[in-house]
Write a protein that binds this DNA or RNA. Structure first.
Lengths: 152, 152
DNA sequence: ATATGTTTAGTCAAAGTTAGTCAAAGAAAG
DNA sequence: CTTTCTTTGACTAACTTTGACTAAACATAT
């Protein structure tokens, strides 16, 4: 179900940069509870994945999803480094790598390398420490790409 | 039993390069416990045998097996993985990356990424643990470069 | 202006649905 | 007889669905 709703919204976003919905309407359209829409947005339309979400409650309320595409690669990478901060989950890290790949900043092989570097099973086993190591690695890798000649 | 399930999956993969199953369905089809499917996958669809496996749990979960093409240099890479073992120093790791680059197995950018991933300052600070993490990362990275996925 | 009611969306935790792990038991091979 | 491979199932982990409760914005009456 979540996958279907995600696909629907992304399809719209392929043609427009922005989509505005009424939560209850979409819920009704797909015959699910309204909060499922929040679940989809929280898991598939995060800033790490390159989406911005705005909403308003009350009469005339809405949820707006905007596909953000930073003009400059360097800006995008700076923003990502900021988002990563001191600690990051495996899932969020994967989203960031995915976004870099989709925005054509890294190749598929580079993406694979970065995904490996971010894999939780390879570190210490302690959640908190692992999230910090992951943040360190990911930030360093991205920073490194910034100062290298563009690929190909 | 395992052989039968293996044969079934490989038959599908002869025609499709990719197969997606629901673990419980296949288990039911062959009248075995679900975890038997994991056994088959772990013993017969490894990366050494040229298969990539992806999966997702929860509602709409799946197991996906993808047939990949191994690179010509994959034997050399296997040797490197063996040499790395359970633990490796930063210096030794650097020379392995260097070798990969000189042998034209990885690009300059890929080398840079790997060198970052192998940098001691990014881990825990404990030398023994760091050497283990480094070995895990490096082996996993090399293993992931061994194959090429079919087109999307 | 303020209070009250209505209409939205947000949160969170419990329940539900998959797949993963691991070790003990059983079977087959050497 | 011993070793290795396979089968099984109890337990765990990850992801999704659901719904009761909360919060915010707007509308209306006082």
């Amino acid at each position: 179900m979540s996958d279907i709703i995600e696909a629907y919204l992304k399809k719209v976003l392929k043609q427009q940069e922005k989509v505005e919905i009424r939560r209850s309407e979409i819920a009704q359209l797909f015959d699910c509870v309204p909060s499922q829409i929040n679940y989809v947005i929280n898991t598939r339309f995060t800033i790490q994945q390159g989406y911005l979400v705005e909403s308003k409650r009350g009469g005339g309320g809405y949820i707006r999803i905007i596909k953000v595409r930073l003009l400059d690669e360097s800006d995008l990478m700076d923003t990502m480094i900021e988002i990563i901060g001191k600690s990051i989950s495996e899932r969020d890290a994967q989203s960031i790598v995915q976004t870099l790949y989709e925005d054509d900043i890294i190749s598929k092989r580079e993406a694979k390398l970065m995904l490996v570097a971010v894999d939780k099973t390879l570190y210490t086993g302690d959640r908190i420490i692992d999230n910090q190591i992951r943040a360190n690695l990911l930030k360093s890798m991205i920073a490194n790409l910034k100062y290298e000649e563009p690929r190909e």
